[in-house]
């Protein structure tokens, strides 16, 4: 096996550990930090089921963003939906078309077909977001270099992916062996294609920066008190552990 293959194997393991440990630690931190006061943005649901529905609408449809700005919503939603489809399309490097998910849950051929073209919607969505960042003075004002680089990074992943689909095919059978090898610890060589190396290299970078960047918005949404709290403050006493001792000291002092 080539030095390059070994390097990528090691990088993938390192990136995976960083991604899962990093995001896991962050989620642990969010989960253990209390929200001492009831601050849902009203009107808010009065039941937990209602809150689940609110969060689902945010995750699936980007409800608040839709209210805020139609262009950002169109580009943002297009990009995220494309990413989801791209993720499922890439399952073909890990599972076979006869596994349990396929068939009843996912229409394999439709997915593969649609997946080819979602690289375009992904790139269009990201390009739209980048254009807003550059040309809308308010968005330009709030952008740091990392905000541009993040978009360019994912555009890079999308473009190299699209090129492999439509211009310079890579050996996907060998690639599948490589990927399955990562899961089963029976390693095989990575096909040597510059586009593939670039594509995977950028994905590795994305995995590594996920837990230390604004990509934390993904877990963050689920822990956002303005979105995940039930409006029931009059009915149920809500109190954080750190505030409990204050019950004793409150009053004339």
């Amino acid at each position: 096996m080539s030095f390059l293959s070994v390097t990528y194997i090691l990088l993938f393991y390192a990136a995976t550990i960083i991604l899962f440990v990093g995001v896991g630690r962050r989620i642990y931190k969010y989960a253990k930090t209390p929200a001492p006061l009831k601050i849902p943005t009203m009107p808010a649901p009065t039941t937990k089921v209602g809150v689940a529905a609110r969060l689902t609408r945010e995750v699936v449809f980007f409800e608040s963003l839709f209210k805020a700005n139609l262009w950002t919503w169109i580009f943002g939603w297009m990009f995220h939906a494309s990413l989801l489809i791209a993720f499922f399309r890439h399952l073909r490097y890990v599972v076979n078309s006869d596994t349990f998910l396929i068939g009843p849950v996912i229409h394999w051929h439709l997915l593969q077909l649609a997946g080819q073209y979602t690289s375009f919607t992904l790139i269009i969505g990201l390009a739209g977001l980048l254009a807003r960042r550059i040309f809308v003075d308010r968005v330009r004002y709030i952008s740091a270099p990392s905000d541009y680089l993040m978009l360019l990074l994912i555009i890079g992943i999308g473009v190299t992916g699209a090129l492999m689909t439509f211009v310079a095919h890579t050996d996907i059978v060998a690639l599948k062996d490589f990927v399955i090898g990562l899961f089963t610890f029976s390693f095989s060589a990575l096909p040597t294609s510059l586009l593939l190396l670039l594509h995977l290299g950028l994905v590795i970078v994305l995995m590594i920066i996920f837990p230390i960047s604004k990509l934390l918005h993904a877990p963050g949404l689920f822990f956002s008190p303005t979105r995940n709290q039930v409006d029931n403050s009059r009915e149920k006493r809500h109190i954080a552990d750190w505030a409990k001792p204050l019950d004793e000291t409150r009053g004339k002092s």
Binding site: R26, K29, T33, L65, T72
Partner: peptide, 24 residues
Amino acid sequence: LLGKYRGLQVYLDSCVKCGACTDK
């Protein structure tokens, strides 16, 4: 405060600078 208020911690991490709030 970061240890006492989940909102603060999550909000300082999560902003993606999308600009949705800029004209609000």
